[in-house]
Design a protein around this nucleic acid. Structure first.
Length: 295
DNA sequence: ACATAGACCTGTTGGC
DNA sequence: TGCCAACAGGTCTATG
């Protein structure tokens, strides 16, 4: 499912329910997702107060007072949903209104706020490519420390992108998916950004780097296209093709704005272009592009 | 260093 | 209608 915009959408949905809440219970319904869940997941988190819900690339970062940083990745099909308990929790009350358990609900966080609000936050993941891990004491983890630049950051521009791609013979599409270079892009937004920038996914990464990276050069256009498509997708609540839902259950709608992704055979949307959207396979994954205007 | 293929899983879709 | 292959937003591993 989720690339950076979808994960950011989930983060924004979870934050109001989770930040400031005390974790009253953690329930695991199975011992593993993609990797074994930490054996001490419930023991370490129960009783802790959540201080912030962050994001790095496609990872959610759940920070508490006292426990190690919890890293959560949604894989292809992971989602969180928030169930609100009815009314304030009173002593002795044990029966809370809540949704039914669903298939593939794997981890449940019971949360209580000081003002009496109570929530269940449920992690559901049919394919179980997602995972949850604790980072070590330095709040780092090999999976985080290897990540490249955040494409939403201020430093990400044409010059930086050119530096990342220079000299690489790998296809541009593959380089843009490499999380060690740029962290957070996935299959959808790479295709969309390349179409916006008018650059072929088949070019080698290094071949788009000119001697001088001026405004309007390929790396400059591509960096701007990446920034724009990511920002627009976040604004739209992400793209809901199959699995992605915001934490409140609503769908994202950026899929309606796709120019090429999942649009094989449709006319290219560039005004003067007579081309048709092609689907090809690169490194085992679909790429969508217009061979007329993407060179 | 780099390219490709396979692995992990379940669910949905499209063609016959 | 049923069956089965292909495919899906990710990323790690093995192999050349």
């Amino acid at each position: 499912m989720p690339e950076l915009p979808e994960v950011e959408t989930v983060r924004r949905g979870l934050a109001p329910a989770m930040e400031g809440a005390r974790i009253s219970a953690v329930t695991t319904r199975r011992a593993d997702l993609r990797f074994p869940l930490p054996l001490d997941l419930a023991r370490s988190l129960t009783g802790r107060t959540i201080t912030s819900i962050g994001r790095r690339a496609k990872y959610l970062l759940i920070e508490t007072e006292g426990a190690p940083l919890l890293i959560s990745h949604l894989g292809m099909s992971g989602s969180f949903r928030i169930e609100q308990m009815e009314g304030a929790i009173t002593p002795g009350q044990f029966h809370h209104a809540r949704g039914k358990d669903e298939k593939h609900d794997h981890v449940v966080f019971d949360l209580k706020h000081a003002d009496g609000r109570g929530y269940r936050v449920v992690y559901n993941d049919p394919r179980r490519f997602g995972f949850m891990l604790f980072a070590d004491e330095e709040r780092m983890h090999p999976m985080l420390s290897a990540l490249g630049v955040e494409p939403t950051g201020n430093a990400f521009d044409g010059a930086m992108l050119a530096d990342l791609l220079r000299g690489k013979n790998t296809p541009l599409k593959s380089a843009l998916l490499d999380q060690r270079l740029i962290a957070g892009l996935g299959n959808i937004y790479v295709s969309e950004a390349l179409w916006r920038a008018g650059i072929s996914p088949l070019r080698t990464a290094g071949s788009i780097v000119p001697k001088r990276v001026a405004a309007g050069s390929r790396p400059d256009r591509l960096a701007q296209a990446i920034r724009a498509v990511i920002a627009e997708a976040i604004e739209a609540g992400g793209s809901s093709l199959r699995d992605h839902r915001q934490a409140d259950g609503s769908l994202g709608y950026f899929q309606h704005s796709f120019a090429v992704y999942d649009r094989e055979g449709q006319p290219c949307q560039h005004p003067e272009c007579k081309g048709t959207v092609q689907r090809i396979v690169q490194a085992g994954r679909s790429t969508f592009y217009c061979s007329q205007c993407q060179r």
